[in-house]
C-alpha cells in the first residue's frame, strides 16, 4: 500500500549534522578522547625536563631560546609521535563502533553512507587538530614556565613566537591528512583495531628509515617530519605547503574518494 505516512528523507546536511552530534557524544569516556587531550603533553614534558636540567648546553648564550626549543620539540613530535598518534586515533575512533557491534544499527538508521563517512571523518579531523593545538599551547606554556623556573635560559626575555606557531600548525596538520585518510579507510574496511594499527606502525617506521630516499616526498607517513622543511632560519614559517605537504593532501583526497567508492561495496552481512 502507498501509505499516508510522512515519507520524506532528511537532507544530506541534516543527516551529517545528526551523525556528527551522535559521534561527538560517543567520544565521552573513550581512550580516543584521552589520547587526544593527553598525547600532546608527552613531547612537551620530555623537552621541558631536558631544557630544565640541560638547557644551558642546548642553547647559545644570549640568544633567543624559543626557536631552538620549539623546533627540537616539534621535530621529535612530528617524526614519530604524530604519525603514530594519527594511526592510533583513527583505529580507536572506529573501534568504538566495532566493539558495540554498531554498524548494523547505524546503517539501519535514516542516514546515508555519505553522512556516516563524512561525520566520522570530521570527528577525526577535529580530534587531530585539537591534539595539535593542545600540544602547541602546552609547548608555549612550558616555555613560559621555564622562563620562571630557569631564568638563566632567558625564555622570559624574549616574546614567544606565537606568529610562527599558527603557520607551523598548518603545515603539520596538512601533512598528517594523508596518513589520516589512509588509516581511516583501512580501519573502516577491516573493522578491526589491530590490523590498521599494525600496518600504520609498519608504514611509519618504514618512512623513517627511507628519509634519505629521493622519492620520500611521496610517502605520506614521512610528511609530518618533512613539513619542517617549511621552517626558515629564526623560525620563519610561510603558509605555502612544501611538496610533501601538497602530496599529503593529494593522498588524502585520492584515498577518501577511492575509499568511499570501495566502502559502498561493503555490506552488513556479518554479525556487526
Amino acid at each position: 500500500m502507498e501509505t499516508a505516512l510522512t515519507f520524506a528523507q532528511p537532507g544530506l546536511l541534516t543527516q551529517l549534522r545528526r551523525s556528527l552530534s551522535a559521534d561527538v557524544l560517543k567520544l565521552k569516556h573513550t581512550p580516543a578522547l584521552w589520547l587526544t587531550l593527553g598525547s600532546g603533553a608527552l613531547p612537551v614534558l620530555l623537552f621541558g625536563l631536558i631544557f630544565f636540567f640541560k638547557g644551558q648546553f642546548l642553547l647559545k648564550p644570549g640568544q633567543n631560546p624559543w626557536p631552538a626549543y620549539i623546533l627540537q620539540s616539534w621535530q621529535t613530535a612530528t617524526g614519530l609521535l604524530l604519525p603514530l598518534f594519527v594511526v592510533l586515533l583513527s583505529s580507536l575512533v572506529l573501534h568504538t563502533e566495532n566493539k558495540a557491534l554498531a554498524w548494523k544499527h547505524l546503517y539501519a538508521q535514516p542516514l546515508s553512507r555519505a553522512a556516516v563517512f563524512g561525520s566520522k571523518l570530521l570527528v577525526l579531523l577535529g580530534l587531530n587538530l585539537l591534539a595539535q593545538v593542545v600540544y602547541a599551547v602546552l609547548l608555549v606554556a612550558s616555555g613560559w614556565l621555564l622562563g620562571v623556573l630557569r631564568p638563566a635560559l632567558h625564555f622570559a626575555d624574549f616574546a614567544a613566537p606565537l606568529g610562527a606557531i599558527v603557520p607551523l600548525l598548518w603545515h603539520t596538520f596538512a601533512a598528517t591528512l594523508g596518513i589520516l585518510a589512509l588509516q581511516y579507510v583501512a580501519a573502516l574496511w577491516w573493522r578491526s583495531f589491530a590490523a590498521p594499527v599494525a600496518v600504520g606502525m609498519a608504514c611509519t617506521i618504514a618512512a623513517l628509515t627511507l628519509m634519505r630516499w629521493e622519492f620520500i616526498d611521496w610517502v605520506p607517513y614521512a610528511a609530518p617530519l618533512l613539513s619542517l622543511k617549511a621552517v626558515g632560519k629564526g623560525l620563519n614559517v610561510g603558509w605555502a605547503l612544501s611538496t610533501s605537504g601538497l602530496l599529503a593532501l593529494g593522498w588524502a583526497a585520492a584515498t577518501l574518494l577511492l575509499g568511499y567508492a570501495l566502502l559502498g561495496r561493503r555490506h552488513e552481512g556479518a554479525a556487526r
Binding site: M1, E2, T3, L5, T6, F7, A8, Q9, P10, Q15, K26, K28, H29, T30, T96, K99, A100, L101, A102, W103, K104, H105, L106, A108, Q109, P110, L111, S112, A271
Partner: peptide, 28 residues
C-alpha cells in the same frame, strides 16, 4: 510501506525500528 526499498531506503527507515541479533550498545 508500499515503496520500493532500493529507491526510498532512508525515508522508509525513518518509520522502522529494528533490533537485529545482539543489541548494538556502547558499553562505555
Amino acid at each position: 510501506f508500499g515503496h520500493e526499498l532500493a529507491r526510498h531506503r532512508l525515508a522508509a527507515l525513518g518509520q522502522v525500528g529494528a533490533l537485529i541479533e545482539m543489541p548494538s550498545l556502547y558499553d562505555h
